[in-house]
Amino acid sequence: MKFFTKRNLFIILGIIITILTFIYIIPVALPIILALLTALLIDPLVRLVEKNFKWKRKLAVISVFIFILVILASTLYYTVTQLIGKIIDFTKAAPGYFNTLSGIWIDMQNKLFQYTVGMPIEVTEGIQSELKTVFNSMRIAILDLVSYEKITGLLTDVPNFLVSFIVFIIALFLFMLELPALKESVFKYLTHSTAEKVRFMVRKLNSTFFGFAKAQFLVSLIILAVTFVGLLIIKPEFAIVMALIIWIIDLIPILGSIIILLPWALYYFVSGDVGTGTKLTILAILLLVIRRIVEPKVMGAQIGLNPLPTLVAMFVGLKLFGFIGFFIGPLLVILFTAARDSGIIKINFKI
Protein backbone atom coordinates (compact mmCIF):
# COMPACT_ATOMS: atom_id res chain seq x y z
CA MET A 1 0.00 0.00 0.00
CA LYS A 2 1.26 3.48 -0.92
CA PHE A 3 0.30 4.94 2.45
CA PHE A 4 2.84 2.83 4.35
CA THR A 5 5.90 4.39 2.74
CA LYS A 6 9.11 4.99 4.62
CA ARG A 7 8.48 8.75 4.72
CA ASN A 8 4.94 8.40 6.11
CA LEU A 9 6.08 5.91 8.75
CA PHE A 10 8.78 8.38 9.87
CA ILE A 11 6.15 11.15 10.06
CA ILE A 12 3.80 8.95 12.12
CA LEU A 13 6.66 7.93 14.41
CA GLY A 14 7.67 11.57 14.82
CA ILE A 15 4.11 12.56 15.74
CA ILE A 16 3.88 9.76 18.32
CA ILE A 17 7.24 10.71 19.85
CA THR A 18 6.19 14.37 19.96
CA ILE A 19 2.90 13.55 21.71
CA LEU A 20 4.63 11.31 24.26
CA THR A 21 7.24 14.01 24.83
CA PHE A 22 4.59 16.64 25.56
CA ILE A 23 2.72 14.31 27.91
CA TYR A 24 5.55 12.67 29.89
CA ILE A 25 8.85 14.53 29.40
CA ILE A 26 7.95 18.23 29.20
CA PRO A 27 6.16 18.42 32.61
CA VAL A 28 9.24 16.90 34.29
CA ALA A 29 11.75 19.01 32.35
CA LEU A 30 9.71 22.22 32.61
CA PRO A 31 12.43 24.31 34.40
CA ILE A 32 15.00 23.41 31.72
CA ILE A 33 12.56 24.08 28.87
CA LEU A 34 11.56 27.42 30.38
CA ALA A 35 15.26 28.25 30.77
CA LEU A 36 15.88 27.51 27.08
CA LEU A 37 12.88 29.59 25.99
CA THR A 38 13.96 32.44 28.28
CA ALA A 39 17.50 32.27 26.88
CA LEU A 40 16.07 32.53 23.35
CA LEU A 41 14.03 35.56 24.39
CA ILE A 42 16.99 37.24 26.08
CA ASP A 43 19.47 36.44 23.27
CA PRO A 44 18.63 39.61 21.22
CA LEU A 45 19.46 41.73 24.28
CA VAL A 46 22.76 39.85 24.75
CA ARG A 47 23.69 40.42 21.10
CA LEU A 48 22.74 44.09 21.43
CA VAL A 49 25.08 44.47 24.41
CA GLU A 50 27.83 42.65 22.47
CA LYS A 51 27.43 44.99 19.51
CA ASN A 52 27.13 48.31 21.36
CA PHE A 53 29.86 47.74 23.98
CA LYS A 54 32.16 45.61 21.78
CA TRP A 55 32.22 42.94 24.48
CA LYS A 56 32.79 39.23 24.11
CA ARG A 57 29.72 37.04 24.50
CA LYS A 58 30.73 35.74 27.93
CA LEU A 59 30.99 39.24 29.41
CA ALA A 60 27.73 40.32 27.73
CA VAL A 61 25.92 37.22 29.06
CA ILE A 62 27.19 37.79 32.62
CA SER A 63 26.14 41.47 32.52
CA VAL A 64 22.64 40.77 31.21
CA PHE A 65 22.22 37.82 33.59
CA ILE A 66 23.18 39.91 36.65
CA PHE A 67 20.88 42.73 35.49
CA ILE A 68 17.91 40.33 35.25
CA LEU A 69 18.72 38.75 38.63
CA VAL A 70 18.89 42.18 40.31
CA ILE A 71 15.48 43.19 38.94
CA LEU A 72 13.93 39.82 39.89
CA ALA A 73 15.48 39.79 43.37
CA SER A 74 14.46 43.40 44.09
CA THR A 75 10.85 42.77 43.07
CA LEU A 76 10.61 39.56 45.09
CA TYR A 77 12.31 41.10 48.15
CA TYR A 78 9.98 44.12 48.24
CA THR A 79 6.86 42.04 47.63
CA VAL A 80 7.69 39.27 50.13
CA THR A 81 8.81 41.62 52.92
CA GLN A 82 5.71 43.77 52.54
CA LEU A 83 3.48 40.68 52.44
CA ILE A 84 5.07 39.22 55.60
CA GLY A 85 4.54 42.55 57.36
CA LYS A 86 0.86 42.55 56.43
CA ILE A 87 0.47 38.92 57.57
CA ILE A 88 2.05 39.78 60.95
CA ASP A 89 -0.31 42.75 61.33
CA PHE A 90 -3.27 40.51 60.48
CA THR A 91 -2.29 37.85 63.02
CA LYS A 92 -2.04 40.53 65.73
CA ALA A 93 -5.49 41.86 64.88
CA ALA A 94 -7.09 38.43 64.26
CA PRO A 95 -8.41 37.90 67.83
CA GLY A 96 -10.24 41.23 67.64
CA TYR A 97 -11.73 40.30 64.27
CA PHE A 98 -13.00 36.98 65.59
CA ASN A 99 -14.51 38.67 68.63
CA THR A 100 -16.24 41.10 66.28
CA LEU A 101 -17.49 38.15 64.24
CA SER A 102 -18.95 36.49 67.33
CA GLY A 103 -20.67 39.75 68.26
CA ILE A 104 -22.12 40.04 64.76
CA TRP A 105 -23.47 36.48 64.98
CA ILE A 106 -25.11 37.15 68.37
CA ASP A 107 -26.57 40.43 67.05
CA MET A 108 -27.98 38.59 64.02
CA GLN A 109 -29.64 36.04 66.27
CA ASN A 110 -31.20 38.79 68.43
CA LYS A 111 -32.54 40.60 65.36
CA LEU A 112 -33.84 37.29 64.03
CA PHE A 113 -35.81 36.73 67.25
CA GLN A 114 -37.31 40.24 66.94
CA TYR A 115 -38.31 39.82 63.28
CA THR A 116 -39.80 36.36 63.79
CA VAL A 117 -42.02 37.24 66.74
CA GLY A 118 -45.51 35.98 66.04
CA MET A 119 -44.43 33.63 63.27
CA PRO A 120 -45.13 29.88 63.48
CA ILE A 121 -42.46 28.02 65.44
CA GLU A 122 -41.67 25.83 62.43
CA VAL A 123 -40.82 28.91 60.29
CA THR A 124 -38.64 30.40 63.03
CA GLU A 125 -36.74 27.15 63.56
CA GLY A 126 -36.31 26.73 59.79
CA ILE A 127 -34.80 30.22 59.39
CA GLN A 128 -32.51 29.67 62.38
CA SER A 129 -31.42 26.30 60.98
CA GLU A 130 -30.62 27.80 57.57
CA LEU A 131 -28.62 30.67 59.07
CA LYS A 132 -26.72 28.25 61.28
CA THR A 133 -25.94 26.06 58.25
CA VAL A 134 -24.64 29.07 56.28
CA PHE A 135 -22.51 30.22 59.21
CA ASN A 136 -21.07 26.74 59.77
CA SER A 137 -20.32 26.39 56.05
CA MET A 138 -18.41 29.68 56.09
CA ARG A 139 -16.53 28.64 59.24
CA ILE A 140 -15.61 25.25 57.72
CA ALA A 141 -14.47 26.93 54.49
CA ILE A 142 -12.20 29.33 56.40
CA LEU A 143 -10.81 26.57 58.60
CA ASP A 144 -10.22 24.39 55.52
CA LEU A 145 -8.37 27.25 53.86
CA VAL A 146 -5.90 27.43 56.76
CA SER A 147 -6.02 23.73 57.65
CA TYR A 148 -2.97 21.75 58.73
CA GLU A 149 -3.06 19.66 55.54
CA LYS A 150 -3.17 22.74 53.27
CA ILE A 151 -0.36 24.49 55.13
CA THR A 152 1.86 21.39 55.28
CA GLY A 153 1.16 20.69 51.61
CA LEU A 154 2.17 24.25 50.74
CA LEU A 155 5.32 24.01 52.87
CA THR A 156 6.16 20.66 51.26
CA ASP A 157 5.99 22.26 47.82
CA VAL A 158 8.37 25.07 48.80
CA PRO A 159 11.58 22.93 48.63
CA ASN A 160 10.48 21.51 45.26
CA PHE A 161 9.88 25.01 43.97
CA LEU A 162 13.27 26.20 45.24
CA VAL A 163 15.04 23.26 43.57
CA SER A 164 13.21 23.92 40.30
CA PHE A 165 14.00 27.63 40.54
CA ILE A 166 17.72 26.97 41.15
CA VAL A 167 17.80 24.54 38.21
CA PHE A 168 16.07 27.19 36.07
CA ILE A 169 18.60 29.89 37.01
CA ILE A 170 21.64 27.65 36.39
CA ALA A 171 20.22 26.27 33.13
CA LEU A 172 19.36 29.79 31.97
CA PHE A 173 22.94 31.00 32.45
CA LEU A 174 24.39 27.94 30.67
CA PHE A 175 21.94 28.22 27.77
CA MET A 176 22.76 31.92 27.41
CA LEU A 177 26.46 31.04 27.14
CA GLU A 178 26.10 28.05 24.82
CA LEU A 179 23.24 29.20 22.58
CA PRO A 180 25.40 29.92 19.48
CA ALA A 181 27.17 26.55 19.84
CA LEU A 182 23.82 24.77 20.25
CA LYS A 183 22.52 26.36 17.06
CA GLU A 184 25.64 25.34 15.13
CA SER A 185 25.47 21.76 16.41
CA VAL A 186 21.88 21.49 15.16
CA PHE A 187 22.45 23.07 11.73
CA LYS A 188 25.48 20.95 10.85
CA TYR A 189 23.21 17.90 10.50
CA LEU A 190 20.87 19.65 8.04
CA THR A 191 21.08 20.08 4.30
CA HIS A 192 21.24 23.61 2.88
CA SER A 193 17.57 23.55 1.84
CA THR A 194 16.38 22.18 5.19
CA ALA A 195 18.63 24.59 7.08
CA GLU A 196 17.05 27.56 5.30
CA LYS A 197 13.58 26.29 6.17
CA VAL A 198 14.58 25.76 9.80
CA ARG A 199 16.16 29.24 9.96
CA PHE A 200 12.90 30.72 8.65
CA MET A 201 10.99 28.70 11.25
CA VAL A 202 13.36 29.82 14.04
CA ARG A 203 12.96 33.47 13.03
CA LYS A 204 9.20 33.02 13.05
CA LEU A 205 9.30 31.36 16.47
CA ASN A 206 11.64 34.05 17.87
CA SER A 207 9.27 36.81 16.77
CA THR A 208 6.34 34.79 18.12
CA PHE A 209 7.93 34.18 21.54
CA PHE A 210 8.82 37.85 21.76
CA GLY A 211 5.24 38.70 20.79
CA PHE A 212 3.91 36.27 23.40
CA ALA A 213 6.05 37.83 26.15
CA LYS A 214 5.05 41.30 24.98
CA ALA A 215 1.37 40.32 24.98
CA GLN A 216 1.55 38.91 28.51
CA PHE A 217 3.37 42.04 29.68
CA LEU A 218 0.81 44.37 28.06
CA VAL A 219 -2.12 42.46 29.58
CA SER A 220 -0.40 42.38 32.96
CA LEU A 221 0.09 46.18 32.82
CA ILE A 222 -3.64 46.62 32.24
CA ILE A 223 -4.37 44.31 35.18
CA LEU A 224 -1.85 46.18 37.36
CA ALA A 225 -3.33 49.58 36.48
CA VAL A 226 -6.95 48.52 37.07
CA THR A 227 -6.00 46.76 40.34
CA PHE A 228 -4.05 49.75 41.63
CA VAL A 229 -6.82 52.24 40.81
CA GLY A 230 -9.47 49.93 42.26
CA LEU A 231 -7.55 49.40 45.50
CA LEU A 232 -6.85 53.14 45.79
CA ILE A 233 -10.62 53.58 45.93
CA ILE A 234 -11.35 50.54 48.13
CA LYS A 235 -8.32 50.19 50.46
CA PRO A 236 -5.70 52.87 49.69
CA GLU A 237 -3.35 51.74 52.50
CA PHE A 238 -2.90 48.36 50.76
CA ALA A 239 -2.96 49.64 47.17
CA ILE A 240 0.74 49.40 46.23
CA VAL A 241 1.60 46.12 47.97
CA MET A 242 -1.55 44.21 47.06
CA ALA A 243 -1.53 45.53 43.47
CA LEU A 244 1.99 44.15 43.02
CA ILE A 245 1.06 40.80 44.62
CA ILE A 246 -2.10 40.47 42.51
CA TRP A 247 -0.13 41.46 39.39
CA ILE A 248 2.43 38.69 39.99
CA ILE A 249 -0.20 36.07 40.88
CA ASP A 250 -2.35 37.05 37.89
CA LEU A 251 0.45 35.97 35.53
CA ILE A 252 -0.33 32.36 36.59
CA PRO A 253 -3.15 31.28 34.26
CA ILE A 254 -4.93 28.79 36.51
CA LEU A 255 -4.84 30.98 39.63
CA GLY A 256 -5.13 34.57 38.54
CA SER A 257 -6.09 37.56 40.66
CA ILE A 258 -9.23 35.86 41.94
CA ILE A 259 -7.17 33.58 44.24
CA ILE A 260 -6.16 36.70 46.22
CA LEU A 261 -9.22 38.91 45.94
CA LEU A 262 -11.96 36.39 46.76
CA PRO A 263 -10.48 35.21 50.12
CA TRP A 264 -9.78 38.85 50.93
CA ALA A 265 -13.40 39.76 50.15
CA LEU A 266 -14.64 36.75 52.15
CA TYR A 267 -12.62 37.95 55.15
CA TYR A 268 -14.37 41.35 55.05
CA PHE A 269 -17.77 39.69 54.64
CA VAL A 270 -17.12 37.52 57.67
CA SER A 271 -15.80 40.44 59.74
CA GLY A 272 -18.97 42.41 59.01
CA ASP A 273 -17.60 44.92 56.46
CA VAL A 274 -20.02 43.97 53.67
CA GLY A 275 -19.29 47.13 51.65
CA THR A 276 -15.55 46.45 51.31
CA GLY A 277 -16.18 42.76 50.64
CA THR A 278 -18.61 43.62 47.84
CA LYS A 279 -16.18 46.12 46.28
CA LEU A 280 -13.35 43.55 46.30
CA THR A 281 -15.65 40.94 44.75
CA ILE A 282 -16.60 43.37 41.96
CA LEU A 283 -12.91 44.14 41.39
CA ALA A 284 -12.10 40.40 41.16
CA ILE A 285 -14.88 39.85 38.59
CA LEU A 286 -13.75 42.93 36.64
CA LEU A 287 -10.14 41.70 36.46
CA LEU A 288 -11.30 38.24 35.38
CA VAL A 289 -13.45 39.70 32.60
CA ILE A 290 -10.66 42.02 31.43
CA ARG A 291 -8.15 39.17 31.19
CA ARG A 292 -10.56 36.81 29.41
CA ILE A 293 -11.58 39.49 26.87
CA VAL A 294 -8.30 41.35 26.33
CA GLU A 295 -5.80 38.46 26.51
CA PRO A 296 -6.84 36.52 23.35
CA LYS A 297 -7.03 39.76 21.32
CA VAL A 298 -3.68 41.13 22.47
CA MET A 299 -1.95 37.76 22.23
CA GLY A 300 -3.42 37.11 18.80
CA ALA A 301 -2.23 40.50 17.57
CA GLN A 302 1.29 40.06 18.99
CA ILE A 303 1.94 36.44 17.93
CA GLY A 304 0.22 36.65 14.57
CA LEU A 305 -2.78 34.42 15.33
CA ASN A 306 -6.45 35.30 15.18
CA PRO A 307 -8.13 35.70 18.59
CA LEU A 308 -10.45 32.71 18.07
CA PRO A 309 -7.71 30.10 17.32
CA THR A 310 -5.64 31.58 20.14
CA LEU A 311 -8.52 31.26 22.62
CA VAL A 312 -9.33 27.71 21.45
CA ALA A 313 -5.66 26.66 21.64
CA MET A 314 -5.28 28.04 25.18
CA PHE A 315 -8.52 26.43 26.39
CA VAL A 316 -7.85 23.00 24.83
CA GLY A 317 -4.23 23.04 26.02
CA LEU A 318 -5.34 23.95 29.54
CA LYS A 319 -7.88 21.11 29.62
CA LEU A 320 -5.49 18.49 28.18
CA PHE A 321 -2.20 19.35 29.90
CA GLY A 322 -3.16 21.54 32.86
CA PHE A 323 -1.14 24.67 33.65
CA ILE A 324 1.56 24.03 31.06
CA GLY A 325 -1.11 23.40 28.42
CA PHE A 326 -2.01 27.09 28.54
CA PHE A 327 1.32 27.68 26.79
CA ILE A 328 1.55 24.38 24.87
CA GLY A 329 -1.74 24.99 23.02
CA PRO A 330 -0.74 28.24 21.27
CA LEU A 331 2.83 26.93 20.88
CA LEU A 332 1.62 23.91 18.88
CA VAL A 333 -0.46 26.19 16.65
CA ILE A 334 2.55 28.46 16.18
CA LEU A 335 4.85 25.53 15.39
CA PHE A 336 2.39 24.17 12.83
CA THR A 337 1.94 27.60 11.21
CA ALA A 338 5.70 28.23 11.08
CA ALA A 339 6.38 24.75 9.65
CA ARG A 340 3.67 25.25 7.03
CA ASP A 341 4.94 28.72 6.06
CA SER A 342 8.54 27.46 5.81
CA GLY A 343 7.55 24.53 3.58
CA ILE A 344 8.51 21.80 6.06
CA ILE A 345 4.85 20.75 6.20
CA LYS A 346 2.91 20.88 2.93
CA ILE A 347 -0.86 20.71 2.90
CA ASN A 348 -2.38 20.70 -0.56
CA PHE A 349 -5.63 18.80 -0.89
CA LYS A 350 -9.28 19.34 -1.73
CA ILE A 351 -12.33 17.38 -0.66
Rank of each mutant, 00 (worst) to 15 (best):
T5R: 01
T5L: 00
I11Q: 09
I15M: 14
I16G: 09
I19V: 15
I19F: 15
P31I: 08
L34A: 10
A35D: 04
F53W: 02
F65Y: 06
I68P: 00
V70N: 03
T75P: 01
Y78C: 08
T79V: 15
T81K: 05
G85T: 07
A93Q: 10
F98V: 06
D107H: 04
Q109E: 06
V117G: 10
E122Q: 07
V123S: 05
V134R: 14
F135I: 07
S137T: 09
I140T: 07
Y148D: 06
G153Y: 07
L154Y: 14
L155H: 08
L155V: 13
V158C: 11
V163Q: 10
I169M: 13
I170K: 12
F175M: 10
M176H: 05
A181Q: 09
K183E: 15
V186C: 06
F187D: 14
A195K: 03
E196V: 02
V198N: 00
R199V: 05
N206W: 02
Q216L: 14
L218Q: 14
L224I: 05
L224A: 12
L231G: 04
L232D: 04
I233E: 08
I249Y: 11
I260C: 07
P263I: 05
D273T: 03
I282W: 13
L283N: 13
A284W: 15
I285L: 15
R292A: 14
G304Y: 06
L311Q: 10
V333E: 02
I344M: 12
I344T: 09
I347A: 08
F349L: 05
